[in-house]
Design a protein around this nucleic acid. Structure first.
Length: 869
RNA sequence: GAGGGAAUGGCGGAACAGGCAGACGCAUCGGACUUAAAAUCCGAAGCCGCAAGGCAUGGGGGUUCGAUCCCCCCUUCCCUCACCA
C-alpha cells in the first residue's frame, strides 16, 4: 500500500518523490569518483572498512543481509567526509557447493548461474545506494582471482604447511564429497543435513596446528567481541598436562594424556578408544569376541548416536592390565584393568586415558556402571562435597593417598607428579589442542584446482607461477563418480599433462580446494585488484593493511575467521604482509528476525496465509487462531523480505533509515514492515522544512542567504537543537547504535517543523551533511536545491558547536526521600547553595514541619532531601 | 552439561554507566483542515485511580539518600560448543 496515492498532480516538482532523483545522484557520485579508493598517492590517512563478502546464492539478498552493509556504508561515508582515503570494496565468494548442486540438478554450468547470481547481487547492492568502489569488485571463481589463490597455496606448501595424508574423513554419500570436521554436525552435513560416514581417503591437509599457539595468543591484540574470542579459544582448545607411559603387564606400553597428573595415584583403570591400534594386540583371547563386536559397533555408530547416548556409558574390558609407573609394581594399586569405551575419542590426545573415577565425572560414571574401584586422592576444599558424600569431585584441592604428593595443592601436585614422571623416564609435560589440521581437499568441480602435478613416481611438483592459473576444464557433467573420485578425474585430457620444466608425463590433481580458500586472503586482493602479476603489491599492503573495521555475522566466528588469520600469519612469516593479524576491529551485526505464525499444533503457517483479526492473527479462510512468533528469515517460512520491494515502494533512503532505526546494529531484532512509514514520514518532514511544496521555489527563501550576526529567538533555539542532535549523531558511531542518531535527526526536524522559516542556511547545510551518510540521496537533492557548492557527500563532516549543546537552564529534579516531587528551572551552572535554595522553594510543602536529615545535591543533576518520617 | 548474550509500555527501542524510567518511531485515541476520506498539522497516552496518590525496567533479596545500571539467588529466551581426559 503506497504512502500516498500518486496521482498525476501529486508528482509535482516540489514534493518528495525519491524515485525521481535517487538514481540521478548516484550517477553524480560515480562521475565524481567519490567512492574510489585512491591509495598511497592520496596523501590522506587510510581507512579500510570491509564487509564479509557474500556467497552469491540464487535467491538474492534479503533485508537481513543488508543490515551490516548499510552500517558499513554509513561508516565509510562519514570517514570520507572526515578526510580519510577509504577502501570499501565488495566482491563474491563464488566457489562452492550450492552452485554445483544446482548444476547437477539442472545441467546448467556453474559459471553461468554464478554470473547471473552475482549480477543480481550487484544490482541489489547498488539499489541500496551503497558506496562501494566497484572498480575493485572481485569474484573468487574467476581465473584472474584464483590464479593468485593458487600462488598463495604454493606459499603454504613451500613453508611445509601443506601435506597429503591418508586420513579418516567425513564422507557424505548424498553430496559425494568429503567434508571438513567443522562442516559436519552430529554426523550430518552442515549444508543439506545429509548423513555422513567416516572413510579413509588420501587428502590434502593444511598444518594449522603449527599455528595454534599464535592463533591463541594473538587474540589479545585484537579489538574483537569477547564472545568471538572465547569461541576461537575453545575451538583451539589448548590444555596443559602430561603424557604418561603405562607399561603393559604382558609387555609393551600405552601412552595416555592427562591434564591431572596429580591424580595418578587415583587411576583405577585405563580406557582406550575403540579405534586404538593397540586394542587388537593387547586383548586377551577370552575377551576378543566381545571387544571386536564392540569396536565394530562403535565404528558404525554415527557421531550423533555416540553423543546422544553420552549419558549412558558403554565399554568392554580387554582382559589386559597396565602398571602404574609411579607405584611399586608390587603395590596392589599399581595393576589396573584396560577397557575400551567410545567415550574416549581416538582423535584427541593419545586416544587413551588413565581413568580416575574419584575425580573425573565421566570416569566416575563408567566406574559406577561397571563396578570398578574408586579411590580418593584429592581432598576437596572445606564445604565442598566429595567422595565422602558419594559424589565425584573434579575440582582443585589437596592431594592425599598419593605418596610423595600428599598435602600438596593441586597445582603443586601436578608439577611434582610431572617431575617424578620425567625422573622415571615415563612421562613428560605436554600441551594438547582440540584443533586439528585442516582438511583442504574436496572431490568437487566448482573450486580452485591445485597448482601442482603428480609425476609417475608419485612425486608432487609445484607448478611455476608462469604456468598458473591451472584453469578448471570446461565440463558439462559435474556429478561425482560412484567410487567417490572427483568429477575432474573424468576430464582425461586435462588430467594428463606434462611437467613444464622437464616434459615428463604427469597427472594433475583432481581434487579442488574447499569453499573457504578464496576468502582466506580476499581482503588483501581488494588492496590491489589491478595487479595482474602478483596477488597484491607490498606497497598496497603497507598502505591499506590491516583492515580497520570488519563487519559480518557471528556465524563465521570460528571457521572463516580462524582460517583467514592462519593464512595471514603464514604470509606474515613469508614476509608478504606487515601485520600479524588481518582484521583489527571486528563487529558482528545482529540477526534480523521476522514474524512467523504457527497453529495450535506448533506447525508454521506462511505469512501470506495469515491475516489479523482485531488483536489476534488467524488463518485466511478458516479463521483458525494462530500464534505470532519471532524466527529467522527463511524461504521455507515465507517471511523473507526483499529490499528491492521496499525500495520500490518507499525509496532507498527510507529503506536505509529503517534498517538502522530498528535498533543497535549488534542486536538481533524483528523486521516489521508496518514501522517503515515512520522513517518515510521523517524524510517528508525534512523535505518540507527545506521546501515549500505549495510554491515553485526550489527551497524556502530563508535558506537562500546566509544569516549574519548573533542568532536570536527561534533560530537560536534551533541552533541548540541542532547542536544536541549532532552530539548524539557523533556518539552513535562509537557503539554503532545508529537508531539513536536517526532519533536525534527526527527530534531536530520536529523542532524545525514548528518554525521552518527560522532555519538558517548554515543549519540546513550542516543538517544535510550530517544526514548524508545515512540518507545520502535526499541530502544530495536538497543540497543541490540549496545551490550549495560541490557535492553534499563530499563536504567536511559537521562537528557540533559545544557552546550551543547545553541549555542555560535545566529542569532540576527535586526529590524527597528519593521520590520526585518537583522539577523547577535552575540556572545551568548554579552552585550547591543556589540549587538548594531553588529546590527548597519548590518542595516547601513537602518539607513543612519535617526534620531534614540530609540534603544530597548533585550539581547539574538533582537535589534530594532526606527527611524523617 | 559448559560458555556467551539478553529480558524495559500494545510493539521496535531510549536513558551521560548509580541521579526526572519510557527519548525517537509504530500502532491507538482525540482535535483542526475537508462535502467526505486520504495525506498533513496540533494534542493525549506506562499501569491502577474521578482525584490526591499509589504501583511499575522478568521474579526474590541486598548495598545506597537514590538502582534499568552494582552484589547474591531464581525464572525464561537466543546463540555457540558439547564425553576433548
Amino acid at each position: 500500500m503506497p504512502v500516498r496515492a500518486m496521482s498525476q498532480d501529486a508528482v509535482s516538482a516540489n514534493q518528495y518523490v525519491p524515485q525521481s532523483f535517487e538514481a540521478r545522484h548516484r550517477v553524480r557520485w560515480e562521475e565524481a569518483g567519490l567512492h574510489k579508493a585512491k591509495g598511497p598517492a592520496s596523501g590522506k590517512p587510510k581507512y579500510y572498512v570491509l564487509d564479509m563478502f557474500p556467497y552469491p546464492s540464487g535467491s538474492g539478498l534479503h533485508v537481513g543481509h543488508a543490515l551490516g552493509y548499510v552500517g558499513t556504508d554509513i561508516v565509510s561515508r562519514k570517514k570520507r567526509m572526515e578526510g580519510f582515503d577509504v577502501l570499501h570494496p565488495m566482491g563474491w565468494d563464488a566457489f562452492g557447493l550450492p552452485a554445483e548442486q544446482y548444476a547437477i540438478q539442472t545441467g546448467r554450468h556453474p559459471r553461468s548461474t554464478t554470473d547471473e547470481n552475482t549480477a543480481n547481487f550487484r544490482r541489489q547492492l547498488q539499489n541500496i545506494g551503497l558506496s562501494y568502489d566497484w572498480s575493485r569488485e572481485i569474484d573468487t571463481s574467476h581465473a584472474s582471482y584464483y590464479k593468485h589463490t593458487q600462488k598463495l597455496f604454493k606459499v603454504l606448501y613451500e613453508q611445509g604447511l601443506a601435506y597429503r595424508a591418508e586420513v579418516p574423513v567425513w564422507w557424505c554419500e548424498e553430496l559425494k564429497t568429503v567434508l571438513a570436521n567443522e562442516e559436519v554436525i552430529n554426523g550430518r552435513s552442515e549444508r543439506g543435513n545429509y548423513p555422513c560416514v567416516r572413510r579413509p581417503l588420501k587428502q590434502w591437509m593444511l598444518k594449522i596446528t603449527a599455528y595454534a599457539d599464535r592463533l591463541l595468543a594473538d587474540l589479545e591484540l585484537l579489538d574483537w567481541p569477547e564472545s568471538i574470542k572465547v569461541q576461537q579459544r575453545e575451538w583451539i582448545g589448548r590444555s596443559e598436562g602430561a603424557s604418561v607411559r603405562f607399561r603393559l603387564e604382558a609387555g609393551g606400553e600405552v601412552e595416555v594424556y592427562t591434564t591431572r597428573p596429580d591424580t595418578l595415584w587415583g587411576a583405577t583403570f585405563m580406557v582406550l578408544a575403540p579405534e586404538h591400534p593397540l586394542v587388537a594386540q593387547l586383548t586377551t583371547p577370552a575377551q576378543r569376541a566381545a571387544v571386536e563386536a564392540y569396536a565394530l559397533a562403535a565404528k558404525s555408530k554415527s557421531e550423533l548416536e555416540r553423543t546422544e547416548l553420552a549419558k549412558d556409558k558403554t565399554g568392554v574390558a580387554t582382559g589386559a592390565y597396565a602398571l602404574n609407573p609411579l607405584l611399586d609394581p608390587n603395590d596392589p594399586r599399581a595393576r589396573i584393568p584396560i577397557w575400551i569405551a567410545d567415550y574416549v575419542l581416538w582423535g584427541y590426545g593419545t586416544g587413551a586415558i588413565m581413568a580416575v573415577p574419584g575425580h573425573d565425572e565421566r570416569d566416575f560414571e563408567f566406574a559406577q556402571k561397571f563396578g570398578l574401584a574408586v579411590r580418593e586422592v584429592v581432598r576437596p576444599p572445606q564445604g565442598t562435597k566429595g567422595l565422602a558424600d558419594g559424589e565425584c569431585f573434579s575440582g582443585e584441592g589437596t592431594a592425599l593417598h598419593s605418596g610423595p604428593l600428599d598435602g600438596l595443592t593441586t597445582s603443586a601436585a601436578k608439577a611434582k607428579a610431572i617431575e617424578l614422571l620425567v625422573a622415571q623416564g615415563c612421562g613428560a609435560k605436554k600441551v594438547t589442542y582440540k584443533l586439528r589440521d585442516w582438511l583442504f581437499s574436496r572431490q568437487r568441480y566448482w573450486g580452485e584446482p591445485f597448482p601442482l602435478i603428480h609425476l609417475e613416481d608419485g612425486t608432487v611438483v609445484l607448478l611455476p607461477d608462469d604456468a598458473l592459473p591451472v584453469l578448471l576444464p570446461d565440463m558439462d557433467d559435474f556429478k561425482p563418480s560412484q567410487d567417490g573420485s572427483a568429477p575432474l578425474a573424468r576430464a582425461k585430457e586435462w588430467v594428463e599433462t606434462r611437467d613444464p620444466r622437464t616434459g615428463a608425463t604427469a597427472r594433475r590433481d583432481t581434487d579442488t580446494m574447499p569453499g573457504w580458500a578464496g576468502s582466506c586472503w580476499y581482503w588483501l586482493r581488494f588492496m590491489d585488484t589491478a595487479n595482474t602479476a602478483q596477488p597484491f603489491s607490498a606497497e598496497a599492503e603497507t598502505y591499506w593493511g590491516p583492515v580497520d573495521l570488519y563487519v559480518g555475522g557471528a556465524s563465521h566466528a570460528v571457521m572463516h575467521l580462524l582460517y583467514a588469520r592462519f593464512w595471514h600469519k603464514v604470509f606474515y612469516d613469508a614476509g608478504l604482509v606487515h601485520t600479524k593479524e588481518p582484521f583489527q576491529k571486528l563487529f558482528n551485526q545482529g540477526m534480523v528476525t521476522a514474524y512467523a505464525y504457527e497453529d495450535a499444533t506448533g506447525r508454521l503457517v506462511a505469512s501470506d496465509e495469515v491475516e489479523t483479526k482485531g488483536e489476534a492473527w488467524v488463518r485466511k479462510g478458516t479463521g483458525e487462531p494462530l500464534q505470532q512468533i519471532v524466527t529467522k528469515m527463511a524461504k521455507s517460512l515465507k517471511n523473507v523480505v526483499n529490499p528491492d520491494d521496499i525500495i520500490a515502494e518507499y525509496g532507498c533512503d527510507t529503506f536505509r533509515l529503517y534498517e538502522m532505526f530498528m535498533g543497535p546494529l549488534a542486536d538481533s531484532k524483528p523486521w516489521n514492515t508496518r514501522d517503515i512509514p515512520g522513517c518515510r514520514r521523517f524524510l517528508e518532514r525534512l523535505w518540507r522544512v527545506c521546501v515549500d511544496e505549495k510554491s515553485t521555489d526550489s527551497v524556502r527563501p530563508n535558506l537562500l542567504t546566509a544569516t549574519t550576526g548573533e542568532l536570536q529567538g527561534e533560530s537560536l533555539q534551533l541552533e541548540r537543537s541542532l547542536a544536541k542532535a549532532l552530539v548524539r549523531v557523533e556518539e552513535s558511531f562509537t557503539h554503532f547504535n545508529f537508531n539513536v542518531a536517526i532519533a536525534a535527526f527526527m527530534s531536530f526536524v520536529n523542532d524545525a517543523t514548528k518554525a521552518p522559516q527560522a532555519v538558517t542556511r548554515s543549519q540546513a547545510q550542516r543538517l544535510l551533511a550530517a544526514l548524508s551518510p545515512f540518507a545520502p540521496h535526499i541530502a544530495e537533492e536538497l543540497w543541490q536545491r540549496l545551490g550549495a557548492d560541490g557535492l553534499c557527500a563530499a563536504q567536511a563532516w559537521p562537528k557540533p558547536d559545544m557552546r550551543y549543546a547545553v541549555d542555560d537552564e535545566i529542569d532540576l529534579p527535586v526529590q524527597v526521600n528519593g521520590k520526585l516531587r518537583a522539577t523547577p528551572k535552575a540556572p545551568k551552572d548554579a552552585d550547591k547553595a543556589g540549587l538548594e535554595a531553588v529546590a527548597r522553594a519548590a518542595v516547601a510543602a513537602h518539607l513543612e514541619g519535617k526534620e531534614i536529615l540530609k540534603v544530597v545535591i548533585v550539581p547539574g543533576r538533582l537535589v534530594n532531601f532526606v527527611i524523617k518520617g
